[in-house]
Amino acid sequence: TTTITTTNEEDARRIATEWKNKGYTVHVEKRGTTFRIEVR
Rank of each mutant, 00 (worst) to 15 (best):
T7Q: 11
V28R: 01
T17V: 09
T5I: 15
K22G: 04
V26K: 00
F35A: 01
V39Y: 04
I37Q: 00
T5G: 03
I15K: 02
R14G: 04
T6S: 06
I15F: 05
V28M: 08
D11C: 12
D11I: 09
N8R: 06
R31H: 14
T34F: 13
V39P: 01
E38I: 15
E9L: 10
R36P: 01
E38M: 13
G23M: 02
T34D: 09
F35L: 04
Y24N: 02
W19R: 01
E9V: 08
E38H: 14
E9C: 10
R31G: 05
G23H: 03
V28A: 03
E10T: 09
H27I: 14
E18H: 13
E9S: 07
T6Q: 03
R40F: 14
E10I: 09
T34I: 14
E38A: 07
I37G: 00
T3W: 15
T25R: 10
I4F: 15
E38N: 09
T25M: 11
T3N: 06
G32N: 05
T7W: 10
H27A: 08
N21T: 09
R13Y: 14
E10K: 09
A12S: 05
K30W: 07
E18M: 13
V39R: 04
T6F: 05
T5P: 02
T33S: 13
I15M: 05
K20Q: 12
D11E: 14
T6K: 03
T1E: 07
T25D: 13
K30Q: 12
K20I: 14
E9Q: 07
K20S: 11
T3Y: 15
T25L: 11
R14A: 08
V26A: 04
K22C: 08
Y24K: 03
T5H: 10
K30N: 06
K20T: 12
R31M: 14
T33Q: 13
N21I: 09
D11V: 10
T33L: 13
G32Y: 04
E9W: 14
E29M: 10
R31Q: 13
T6G: 03
T25F: 12
G32V: 03
T25E: 13
T6D: 02
R14S: 06
V26R: 00
F35H: 03
T33G: 13
F35Q: 01
D11K: 06
V39H: 01
N8H: 06
N21P: 00
A12Y: 03
T17Q: 14
A16H: 03
T34M: 14
R13L: 14
T5Y: 15
V39E: 00
D11F: 10
T5W: 15
V26Y: 01
A16R: 03
T17N: 12
T17I: 12
R13I: 14
R13M: 14
G32C: 05
W19Q: 02
I4M: 07
